[in-house]
Design a binder for these strands. Structure first.
Lengths: 119, 119
DNA sequence: CTACAATATCGTTATTCGACGATAAACGAT
DNA sequence: ATCGTTTATCGTCGAATAACGATATTGTAG
């Protein structure tokens, strides 16, 4: 039995997991801030070992968040936004739901049924 | 030395980590789909042990994504959207950047400098 | 072919995560 | 005060993650 969760939930979780490390967030921010190719400069900026950075890049690549194109001796990384769409709209739904309900202060709910157990 | 990453990157990563599990994504979707209080029904729907679900709920609570209000014997969970704002706008930036550049197919970049090492 | 430069992969180690059952805590009802 | 119901916490265990240095790979230049 391997199907406790549906595919979309797993996909969203996968994307979130790829973003779930400050080093990878920083890598993406570096990619956001530069218009040009980003290669080994990243390693220097992160303050981590080259192999560690390479691993983070691999994770982002597997998640489809970045794409690496081989240039000369280096690799050019660019962002690929389509991969974060599912997660982005998921977050949007959270905001929508919250604004139709109450934002933060009111009580939560009137408890429609007195709890139905599946006996 | 504890400050390899800045606070915002860590905060975004924290939020992403809270979403980085299909069970927690599913919990949030359940909260999205119901208007009423959600308590132990979640446990049944997830197909996980009660203690495991409680732990996932705790993680979401610590991340500030949900809020639990104590009702009678149960706890009423509601979404608190403000906590995902930073991550949401981070994802938005990725999309913006990508549309100003090229979407998916073109070559990446012209390599502005022949690689500057910080000698 | 050899050398070099940039990246990727491997092997290891310490830490964290996820799941579970068992147990505790809270609290209204009897 | 005791019971029953709901949720939280604890202790444990196996699996996954993150980090590193060392080594392999790739491809251009000489």
């Amino acid at each position: 039995m391997n199907k406790l969760f549906n595919e979309q939930d797993e996909s969203i979780a996968e994307t979130a997991k790829a973003l779930a490390h400050p080093a990878r967030v920083k890598i993406i921010r570096l990619l956001l801030s530069k218009t040009s190719c980003v290669g080994g400069e990243i390693t220097a900026e992160l303050g981590l070992a080259q192999s560690t950075v390479s691993e983070h890049l691999r994770i982002l690549k597997v998640a489809g968040i970045i794409v690496g194109e081989i240039e000369h001796p280096r690799v050019c990384y660019t962002l690929k936004p389509s991969s974060v769409n599912a997660l982005a709209s998921f977050l949007e739904q959270i905001n929508i739901k919250a604004s139709t309900a109450q934002t933060d202060d009111g009580l939560c709910c009137p408890l429609e049924s007195p709890f139905e157990q599946k006996d």
